[in-house]
Nucleic acid binder design. Sequence first.
DNA 1: AACGAAGCCAACCGCTCCACG
DNA 2: TCGTGGAGCGGTTGGCTTCGT
Length: 264
Amino acid sequence: MKKMEATKKEEIKKGPWKAEEDEVLINHVKRYGPRDWSSIRSKGLLQRTGKSCRLRWVNKLRPNLKNGCKFSAEEEKTVIDLQSQFGNKWARIATYLPGRTDNDVKNFWSSRLKRLARILHNSSDASSSSCFNPKPNKGKNVKPIQSQSFGLVEEETRASSSSSKILDQVDEEALIRSPELGIKLENHQPFTFGTDLDDPFFYDILGPADSSVPLFGPPQPFFEPSPAPRRFRHVSKDDEESDVFLHDFPADMFDQVDDQTRSP
DNA sequence: AACGAAGCCAACCGCTCCACG
DNA sequence: TCGTGGAGCGGTTGGCTTCGT
């Protein structure tokens, strides 16, 4: 019996998907729709777990995905705005970005955080006046950041486990030197923009890496969110803002951001 | 040209939620 | 009402690519 289970386990395939597997998966979805993932394996169509199949479909095979396409400035700003609203609710944020998956958003965000951590680290290593004149990153042409951002980043990076891991690499002194933002944030709360939208370098860090397009356009989602994922359709104790999210959004959600962007 | 650092992305893992028997 | 399996989500990891020295 154990041997059988072991054999069964061995049959589960992992790693990169082949074109043939994709084809099988696509055919299955064509026939049955994007559900019954586990039946794909039970029918012997693929030696992949249902979970794996679903992930592959959602992230790569789904129609209208913007695969291999960089985040536009507008998309990036949307992510930043929505992250400030919802925190690390990537699936929710992704509903505002057609063609983007939660994985995309997540990768985008963690990428930015990493970069930020590195910048902070480097700036703290730099000479005493430091934050305001961080040395250019070795090799990479990184613009200086103003110290306002540090406070923001400190709070934000503490808000999630992965972020705090990144923060471990950051010289605490650099953070201590940062002026208070005057925004009280608690753990696991999304950060608010505070004064940081005034920071001309803000989007250089959390925003586009290479975009020259101004980011301060109309601060609203550029389309309606897709239907809320199943998970968001019910109201749970810790998700009660879902209703607010679904019904009150997006009429005034960006007022704060708007004000920030308009102020000199 | 070689090397290392950083960026990017696909995929896996563990956990939670929900539907259903 | 409770247990279970499937689905979905967020976090993490590892490999490949790009870029600068």
